[in-house]
Design a protein around this nucleic acid. Structure first.
Length: 875
DNA sequence: TCAGACACGC
DNA sequence: GACGTACGTGTCTGAT
């Protein structure tokens, strides 16, 4: 086989990649664009060139032998951006993982190393390929050597052979050096002859061949001015040529044969790509642990008969429920792993075993699980109470980095460097094709999960400790999971009759409005189709299109509100939309998920999803039941106590986010306002508009409220301008005035952004963490988003911490006092209970008290409550 | 099966 | 100077 060596100019390629690609980040805020580009190029080179030998050369140090000739060499160059410097160690690591030789030598540049090696390689009969972003290297082209220079981007290259150089410049590769000598090179600060550019240089070299010959016969040069210049700057030309000449005699302390390319270390490459977040490149790898044949098989036994000493005092325990919704799904099997080994336990075997049930119910037998809530509810449905959960790898992983959003167990494991579990999709399939595979396949899968939980626990514990999140995990999230399990299990009673009644009513109203709309429009169409609606409004009826979407006219509510005065049809459409939403999402949507027998709804709270630490709720989402408009609010009449002798009791924090802000920012005025129990929007308006509280009119208050809203949700000046219907500039001014009114808040905002930039993340009161890689983006918008996230997350996240803490405290008190009241729902800043009437007096006192004392801030927390015979009446 | 537009809550 | 700008869930449409 013909020998082929590829020589890569490491610094040059890294620079190219850095400037060609947007400033990417991995999920921990490390910049990765240069590494990514480098890796892309490397993979392409390997695939296309299939070299037998390979080397990446780097520049060493700041000074080289060229500085002896000319101290200004490479002078005036911009410093390497720190965002790039920090990536070089990763590039080095990348090369190591690929087992690719890398070399640098004091006093020499990468060019010289490459020049020397290419010469040696040529005489050894190699085919040589040189990769760089620097055209200087083209002087090395020869019959055996091709120089590949990156064009636009990073993988697009131009190949310089002697023929190509001849064609392009009419010169030989050696003459490239002469050309540089004459015209100089501003990027390396090589002077050349003033006034001589590429065109003149080429012309002269075509006539005289080399700098030396040219200078020997300056008389023959045409053009008086040019002749003078050449005369005057002879030495400059000679020196410039010397500087531009790549050394081919570098003393190298290795032989070419040592550059032979071997196999990459796939595990290392895999881990590095994972670490850097190169998911697209990961897909291209032959993953060591992905295919069944290569993956390390977990050793396990299928339990036929249960034996007491299968269960050690501390085990990993996994319950497989394939369906997403564990409230209505079956267990496919159980996995246990501990001192005695790893076991697959068939469901029926477990259910029939008193030994198993006793172990499960024993609080002193500790279990590490994956998704405690899912596990508890899955077993509870089959009559098994699970106690003694002391770890949840899913929750732990979420706390370590909420932005990961792994889709299954295997993804969580992989995040922490463990690859011995297959993805659920690979085992069970996806979508309609999801099913239980052959027995050996799924028993092994389930057992392997149990085995891996053990290892994951160790890894996660270490990381939690490093992040100071042990307490957050053990005192907040894990106990909360148990409370949420009880809430979900309990469910909320629904008055189906009431829902259906409202549905009938809505149906009639919708038909009426529909007819009215068709009549006014003069045509029947699908009002639910923005496309069709757009063509009716803006084409048939000729209304002015205010806003456009990617696909056509926008028909969103804010657009329609602006159009309402122009045409009577618009208000009907808005009304139709409003009622249609109620009908489809709330009436029909809720009816779909009500348990046919018990008439209860069991939502699922997702505890490991949001970036801020809030919960979310699905199937159905009970955190967005209408309240703002009366027509929608009536939906709440269908949410009733499960016991006729009980009421729905709702307690909500008043302005919790702004109180948290007052605390974190330690802003005197804001703290003062809360201590005096002022209406915060009025107080803000008074500050911002420099008037007294009683001079604040409703419009001023409305604007101040919007600004407060913006602070709480981290919206931009644009967002504020949209909600107030003012210009962006005016909105920006509002924010500025707000910050001047609350100097402590202003200082906090500046500090937290600085902190986020330094550390790459922000934290909440209880040490929840969110990484914000966007904050160092060079893109104005992305960075702006990062800054707002930095300001907002500690506020919203701390509020989430507080209510979670309150839920735990309330549950504990209710248990202590032996009350029958039940926590049903959490809606970000409020808790909904079902309270037996005889406990009402106790709960009226207990709940606000516990919620207000959940944490101690330097402002008081305030809780309002209400109750009634339905959720609607708890207002 | 998927993305886009829209609307609900906090 | 323009970029496109709280989050999360669910429904519907219209394309593939």
């Amino acid at each position: 086989m013909k020998k082929k060596i590829v020589l890569i100019d490491g610094n040059s390629i890294a620079y190219r990649a850095f400037f060609a690609l947007p400033l990417l980040n991995n999920n921990k805020g490390v910049h990765t664009n240069a590494v990514y580009g480098f890796a892309m190029m490397l993979l392409k080179v390997m695939e296309e060139e299939k070299p037998t030998h390979l080397l990446v050369a780097f520049d060493a140090g700041k000074t080289t032998f060229r500085h002896e000739t000319y101290s200004e060499y490479k002078g005036g160059r911009q410093k390497t951006p720190p965002e790039l410097s920090e990536q070089f160690p990763y590039i080095r690591e990348l090369l190591k993982a690929y087992s690719i030789a890398q070399y640098e030598l004091e006093n020499y540049e990468a060019d010289d190393i490459i020049g020397t090696l290419s010469l040696q390689a040529e005489s050894d009969g190699f085919e040589v390929k040189i990769y760089s972003g620097d055209k200087d290297l083209t002087q090395l082209a020869s019959d055996q050597t091709t120089v590949c220079i990156t064009k636009k981007g990073i993988t697009d290259i131009e190949e310089y052979t002697p023929a190509h150089i001849q064609e392009k410049y009419g010169l030989t590769p050696q003459q490239i050096i002469d050309m540089k000598g004459l015209m100089g090179d501003s990027s390396d600060n090589i002077p050349g002859i003033p006034g001589v550019g590429e065109k003149t240089a080429i012309k002269l070299l075509k006539q005289f061949e080399t700098v030396e010959k040219l200078l020997g016969s300056i008389d023959e040069v045409s053009g008086k001015k040019l002749k003078e210049k050449l005369e005057e700057h002879q030495e400059l030309a000679v020196m410039s040529k010397e500087l531009a000449t790549i050394s081919r005699e570098v003393p190298l302390d290795f032989s070419i044969s040592s550059l032979e390319y071997r196999e990459p270390d796939e595990q290392k490459v895999y881990e590095l790509f994972k670490d850097l977040g190169f998911n697209s490149l990961l897909d291209k790898l032959n993953r060591p642990a992905e295919s069944t044949e290569e993956r390390e098989q977990v050793e396990y036994k299928v339990v036929k008969e249960l034996d007491e000493d299968l269960f050690s005092s501390s085990s990993s325990f996994y319950v497989e429920i394939i369906t997403e919704n564990y409230h209505q799904a079956d267990i496919a099997g159980l996995g246990i792993s501990g001192e005695k080994g790893t076991f697959f336990l068939p469901l029926e075997t477990a259910l029939q075993s008193d030994v198993f049930k006793a172990w499960a119910a024993d609080d002193s037998k500790k279990k590490a699980v994956y998704d405690a809530k899912r596990t508890i509810i899955g077993l509870r449905r089959r009559g098994v109470e699970l106690k003694g959960i002391d770890f949840d790898v899913w929750l732990a992983s979420y706390l370590l980095n909420p932005s990961e959003s792994p889709e299954d167990f295997a993804a969580v494991a992989r995040l922490h460097g463990l690859t011995s579990v297959q993805t659920d999709e690979a085992v069970y399939g996806k979508g309609a094709k999801r099913k239980l595979p052959d027995e050996e396949v799924y028993t092994e899968h389930i057992a392997s999960k149990a085995a891996v939980i053990e290892e994951l626990k160790e890894v996660c514990l270490k990381e939690l400790e490093q992040n100071e999140q042990i307490e957050l995990f053990y005192e907040l999230e894990l106990p909360l999971a148990l409370i949420l399990a009880d809430m979900e299990t309990e469910g909320v009673q629904v008055d189906i009759g009431r829902l259906k009644e409202m549905g009938e009513d809505l149906k009639n109203k919708l038909t009426d409005i529909e007819q009215t709309i068709y009549r006014i429009a003069g045509t029947e169409f699908n009002i639910n189709s923005p496309k069709q609606l757009g063509s009716v409004l803006f084409e048939k009826l000729g209304l002015p299109p205010i806003k456009k979407t990617k696909t056509g006219y926008s028909t969103s509510a804010d657009v329609l509100e602006k159009l309402a005065p122009s045409h009577e049809i618009v208000e009907h459409i808005l009304h139709y939309r409003q009622l249609g939403k109620l009908q489809s999402t709330y009436i029909e949507g809720l009816l779909k998920v009500v348990d046919k027998d018990t008439h209860k709804i069991h939502t699922r709270f997702n505890q490991a999803l949001t970036q801020t630490g809030r919960l979310s709720s699905t199937e159905p989402n009970l955190q967005n039941i209408p309240i703002r408009l009366e027509e929608g609010r009536k939906i709440r009449q269908a949410f009733v106590p499960s016991d006729p002798e009980a009421v729905i009791f709702a307690a909500d924090y008043s302005q919790i986010e702004l109180r948290v802000l007052a605390h974190i920012a330690d802003d005197e005025r804001l703290i003062d306002a809360f201590k005096h129990g002022l209406d915060i929007h009025t107080a803000t308006a008074a500050q911002v508009f420099h008037v007294s509280q009683d001079e604040v009119d409703s419009n001023m208050r409305r604007q101040a409220k919007a600004v407060n809203f913006g602070i709480v949700y981290g919206i931009s000046d644009y967002g504020l301008s949209q909600s107030l219907g003012i210009t962006r500039k005016e909105a920006g001014l509002f924010i500025e005035r707000y910050l001047n009114s609350y100097p402590g808040v202003k200082e906090y905002m500046e500090d937290i952004v600085r902190q986020a930039k330094e550390r790459g993340y922000v934290t909440t009161l209880l040490h929840r963490r969110r990484y914000i890689p966007e904050i160092t983006s060079r893109n104005f918008n992305v960075r702006g988003f990062g800054e707002r996230t930095a300001m907002n997350t500690p506020i919203q996240g701390s509020a989430a911490d507080i209510i979670k803490k309150a839920m735990i405290d309330v549950a504990e008190r209710v248990k202590e006092e032996g009350l029958a009241s039940k926590l049903l729902l959490q809606v970000h800043d409020e808790l909904i209970f079902e309270v037996p009437k005889e406990e009402l007096d106790v709960m009226k006192k207990l709940v606000p008290e516990v919620m207000e004392q959940a944490v101690e801030l330097n402002v008081p927390l305030k809780v309002d409550y209400s109750y009634g015979s339905t959720w609607y009446d708890a207002k």
